[in-house]
Amino acid sequence: MSGTQQPSSSQTQLDRAGQELVIEHLAAGYGKVQVLWDVSVRVGPGEFVAMIGANGAGKTTTLRAVSGVVKPTGGRIRLGGHDITRAAPSDVVALGLGHVPEGRELFAMMSVRENLELGAAMRPEARAVQQHTLEQVYALFPRLQERSKQLAGTLSGGEQQMVAVGRALMGLPSVLVVDEPSLGLSPLMTQTVFEALKAVNAEGVSVLLVEQNVGLSLRLAHRAYVLENGQVVKEGTGQALLADPSVRAAYLAL
């Protein structure tokens, strides 16, 4: 991790196994505006899966449907064998989903530590080991321990993104969905955040990533999906899509 000593696996071990996330023929939108028409995505236990596409393709709406913020109008979503298609967000969290939203959505007038502790609030098992998990998050992001008493709203964008990721990890997720983590970050901070996501995945947590930095996300992903106009139009391994001429022309300007 840039500027800090890379923590060992034993320091950051999150003590959980990834679950499978399956999205089947998902349709969803906002009021009368339909955004998703037919989205099918699978994240296997312990997989790192990327979802790429232009702005407005439906990537964020897909993640919001998974976490229960947007209610699907069709299709099905399963998490670890549980049907969560129309489950409340609190129930989805209880089953092991962590969501790092676009824009971070921190409580600006609360401290870094208070924001992190909120991540454990919805799960009794997370509250029971809150201090232990907090120490693991601090090992993953040492800068957050240095700024634990600082108001979240006074942090840099990169530091706020660390808090958003750490807050999701405090809930002991087995599946982590992450929306545009590099948005507004410097290349150095982007590298730091992505190294953390890679480390979390290496410890067993399943990851579904939406990210504007297509090259970086495809290099990290085991598999990836391309969304266009609310539908999956292409899928494959991260390396295969990185080498795909149509993907390179559309998203990498190559």
Results as ranks from 00 to 15, higher is better:
residue 177 V to C: 06
residue 161 Q to C: 03
residue 120 A to I: 05
residue 150 Q to E: 08
residue 240 A to M: 12
residue 61 T to N: 15
residue 15 D to S: 12
residue 25 H to V: 14
residue 136 Q to K: 05
residue 183 L to K: 14
residue 203 E to A: 14
residue 199 A to E: 06
residue 245 P to C: 05
residue 193 V to K: 00
residue 228 E to V: 08
residue 246 S to M: 12
residue 150 Q to D: 06
residue 182 S to Y: 04
residue 131 Q to C: 15
residue 111 S to W: 05
residue 124 P to H: 07
residue 76 R to L: 12
residue 139 A to Y: 04
residue 77 I to T: 09
residue 79 L to P: 10
residue 125 E to H: 14
residue 190 T to N: 05
residue 171 G to V: 03
residue 254 L to T: 12
residue 114 E to Q: 09
residue 95 L to R: 04
residue 133 T to S: 11
residue 85 T to Q: 08
residue 42 R to P: 08
residue 142 P to W: 01
residue 188 L to P: 15
residue 6 Q to A: 10
residue 204 G to W: 05
residue 33 V to Y: 15
residue 245 P to M: 02
residue 43 V to Y: 06
residue 100 V to S: 01
residue 90 S to C: 10
residue 214 V to N: 04
residue 224 A to G: 12
residue 206 S to W: 00
residue 130 Q to L: 09
residue 41 V to T: 09
residue 233 V to Q: 07
residue 4 T to W: 11
residue 117 E to P: 10
residue 23 I to P: 00
residue 247 V to A: 02
residue 243 A to Y: 10
residue 101 P to A: 15
residue 48 F to Q: 01
residue 161 Q to I: 02
residue 76 R to D: 14
residue 17 A to Y: 09
residue 84 I to E: 01
residue 208 L to V: 06
residue 162 M to V: 05
residue 94 A to V: 11
residue 177 V to D: 00
residue 118 L to E: 00
residue 183 L to T: 13
residue 215 G to V: 13
residue 221 A to Q: 06
residue 159 E to M: 05
residue 26 L to S: 01
residue 45 P to S: 09
residue 239 Q to H: 13
residue 20 E to K: 09
residue 15 D to C: 13
residue 244 D to A: 02
residue 66 V to G: 00
residue 152 A to C: 14
residue 213 N to K: 10
